[in-house]
Each structure stands twice: as C-alpha cells, then as structure tokens.
Write a protein that binds this DNA or RNA. Structure first.
Lengths: 160, 160
DNA sequence: CAAGTATTTGCAACTCATTGCAAAAAGAAA
DNA sequence: TTTCTTTTTGCAATGAGTTGCAAATACTTG
C-alpha cells in the first residue's frame, strides 16, 4: 500500500467521497513543491482535469486541511498549502521581504503554549503557526556585520 | 494641546495631509469602543460626513496603522482597529468560538522574540500579535471541572 | 491670496475567497 | 445492475478588501 493510498484511506475513513477532483488535488499537492499557492494548485489540477473549478479547489483544500492531510501557510496575504508530513511537523517563519518560508520546530512554541493554557485557560491554535518577519538574509545589517555573512545562523528553508 | 491634536501632529510630522476624511476617521476610532470593525468605522464616519467612501476608510485605516496610530486586530476573518495606547501596548488572544478578544501582555512574547532573533537571525513582526484559540469560557470542560467555574483564570477582555 | 504640484478622494473595476443552489455523481442498499 | 440518498460539483452571485485613474483638494511658494 503506497503512501498515496494511505492518504486516500484517511478521507474514506472519515466518510468523505473519493471524487476525481479530490484525487487530482491530492496528487498535485503530494507531488508539488512545498507550500503551493491555490492558483498553482488550480492550474496544475486543471491541466490534469480540464473541468476543474476553482471553487472546488478551495473547498477541497479546506477539507484536506480539516482532516489534516495538508497544512495551510499564509505567505504574504495568500494562502498556500503543503502536504502534512506527520513525522516532520513544523511551523513557519515567513519573510516579509523575500517571501521565503523557513521551518520552525514546534519545540519553540511549547512554552508559549503552556503559558497561555496555564495562566489564562486559553487554548491557542498551534497546530500550525506562521510568524511573519524579516529573515537574516533580508535583514538590514549593522555596519559591523557587513561582509561577515550569516554563517552564524541556520535557516532551514523550504525548497521552493 | 489635547491628545487628539497630538495624534494629528503625528500625521503632519510624517508629511500626510489632514483631510476631513482623515480627521473624521481618527475621531471615530479615538472615541469608539475597542477594536471596531471596518464597517462600523465606515457607518459612523459616514454619519458625520455623508460623502465618505468605503475605500477611503480602508486606505485611511491602513495609513493610521502604518504610522502607528491604530492597531489592527484580526477577529474572526475580519479586520478590526483600535487606537494605539502607547502606555498600554498589548497583544490579543481571540476566541474562535465567541470571538471575544483578550489582552495579552507583550511580556509573554519577549522570550519567543529573543529566541527567533538569536537562533535564526529572524526578526519577527511582534509589534502587534494575534493568536487564535479557544478561551476558558468556551473551552470544553473536563468532567472534574464542570461546576467549578473558571475563577482560577484571569482574562482581561476588551470591553466590546 | 492666487497659482502650482503632489497627494488624496471617489468611483468603478478587480482579486481572492466563500456561498447558495440546482444538477451531477459517489457510495449504499436492494 | 438499478435505485435511492446524500454528498459534491459547477456556476453564478456575493463579500471583504485593494487598486487604477481622473477629478478634487491640501499644502507650498511667490
């Protein structure tokens, strides 16, 4: 049983129907690069199935997100999606300047999460979290740093 | 010099023109309750200045946000704005169920901020931060908690 | 205070995303 | 396989927010 079939089983198990549209969107996202924009998913899906409708792509991605098959990442002000890798869950730091997305281990949010729960009884949605900002490469460097490069930092960028 | 005039000075100092539309939007936000929706701002502004256009309200609020006069809060999926109180800066926890917005002291994000800067050289936008989730009152209670109330937590809700 | 210019407004068109609804189709049952 | 029920799709309309552009206007300078 392939990994792709396992994904389909997730849908079946929750009582969702396996329509050609869903199979295609799933395949596009599974085979595509990290965090694809909705329009990209739409174009690729449409080339495999010309009757594909944009609304269906939106609905399908939302469904996939609900059942955990994909992860939603807000890049700029557009929504992107990537296949969820259960063994490599991570959050994202998205650079406001270059729009690059960098992975962030869930470990960095554990304490924040406990604090909100313990102090306020507030349960934050931290299934997937995206924080915007400016990455090392786009950061205005202080004079002392100019020419020093940024070898001191490790940014695990999503291949795009 | 009133506080209102100080706000106007901020605009003037940055070279922005003081149009009637801007004066009115500023007054509406300054006198309004916490985090008003754009449509509310629009309605109130329109009653003071019938020619007010919705696009102008959007542009004006965006400008005010840029210069720091107002803070943008995403509640549900709509944007809300509140006057920035420099002596009471805070982030928000927004409940996905009741849509209530609760204040969160910047102190709770200091460590997270330093971690990202120190470990990744990533400078997160933490001027204002909104985290979605479920608040104590809307949280499904465990059997042991039923009837116990939520006196153990202090949620500082924005008056709405 | 009049003239000049750069910004801002109002309007309409547009984008991204969602939704109502009738028609189509998936899966279950016979 | 045929029928039935429920979900899903395609389409068109809607909603929130943004944008291009010509007309209007706030501010600057003489």
């Amino acid at each position: 049983m392939t990994s792709y079939d396992q994904l389909l089983q997730v849908l079946r198990d929750e009582g969702h129907r396996l329509t050609p549209q869903r199979l295609i969107v799933l395949r596009v996202v599974a085979e595509g690069r990290q965090h694809m924009g909705v329009d990209e998913v739409f174009r690729e899906a449409q080339s495999a199935y010309p009757f594909m409708d944009l609304a269906t792509v939106y609905r399908t991605l939302r469904l996939f997100k609900q059942v955990g098959l994909v992860t939603e990442v807000a890049i700029g002000d557009r929504l992107h999606y990537e296949l969820t890798h259960p063994d490599d869950r991570h959050h994202h730091m998205v650079c406001r300047v270059c729009h690059g997305a960098f992975n962030l281990s869930p470990h960095y949010l554990e304490e924040f999460n406990s604090t909100l729960v313990n102090e306020f009884g507030f349960i934050p949605d931290l299934d997937h979290f995206t924080i915007a900002g400016v990455c090392v490469n786009c950061r205005p460097q202080s004079p002392a740093e100019v020419g020093a490069g940024s070898e001191e930092f490790t940014l695990d960028e999503d291949p795009t």
